[in-house]
């Protein structure tokens, strides 16, 4: 079956199609793409750890701003209403739709924040050149698995659509939280673009 007897430590497999490759790919320092299915297996970048850490810290601080300040203010014929991100989350708490409130809170606030905290926990010691903190690997895996469920950027598109819907009914003004949330969505996308999951795993592997 194999020409050489495989030493598992010297091999890696494409996560998408299971094709085996030599682990030299890891140390080459270049982007490695699976020759069978085209999946990017490794995309290491110099200093990426520090970039990821910086983006994550910035996003977390802005997330706090987004929660503490007014998000949107609406004025129509002398009446004014204000909504924060928390209000948007809580809007489903009426009419027996509390579970949906919880889900929205998770999708736009809690899971993105949790992912950022986990990522900072994992990358801070690495960026400082220290050994990973305890349970860093569990933390990083959780961060990766929660990725599809963190929807801050989708929420911002939803907000844009909502503003068009009420545009001719009222005047909308943006609060600080709006800009903070827009920045969070951008930083999250930048952070995920820079992170190479498998390079990080390589740094986290047990000595």
């Amino acid at each position: 079956m194999t020409s050489t007897s495989p030493d598992p430590a010297r091999l890696v497999a494409c996560p998408t199609c299971d094709t085996l490759f030599h682990a030299d790919l890891l140390t080459a320092g270049r982007t490695a793409t699976c020759s069978c299915c085209g999946t990017v297996i490794f995309a290491p970048r110099n200093g990426a750890i520090r970039t990821v850490l910086a983006l994550a810290v910035a996003a977390l601080v802005l997330m706090a701003v987004a929660l503490g300040f007014p998000f949107l203010t609406m004025t129509a014929s002398g009446l004014t209403t204000q909504a924060s991100v928390i209000d948007a989350v809580a809007s489903f708490a009426v009419d027996d739709m509390a579970p949906l409130s919880l889900a929205i809170g998770l999708l736009i606030v809690l899971l993105p924040s949790l992912r950022l905290c986990l990522l900072i926990y994992v990358t801070l010691p690495l960026a400082l050149g220290r050994r990973p903190w305890p349970r860093a690997r569990e933390a990083f895996r959780m961060n990766v698995e929660l990725r599809p469920w963190s929807m801050a950027e989708i929420f911002m598109v939803g907000v844009a659509v909502a503003m068009v819907k009420v545009a001719d009914m009222a005047t909308i003004s943006f609060g600080p939280a709006f800009w903070a949330m827009a920045a969070v969505a951008t930083l999250l996308a930048a952070k995920d673009a820079v992170t190479c999951e498998r390079t990080l795993w390589h740094m986290l592997r047990p000595a």
Binding site: L79, A83, A88, A90, I108, M151, I154, G158, V166
Partner: peptide, 16 residues
């Protein structure tokens, strides 16, 4: 999920 978020932000905002 966009539409769900649209409803969430509108329900929070449009409360006159």
């Amino acid at each position: 999920m966009i539409d769900v978020f649209v409803v969430a932000i509108l329900s929070a905002l449009v409360q006159f």
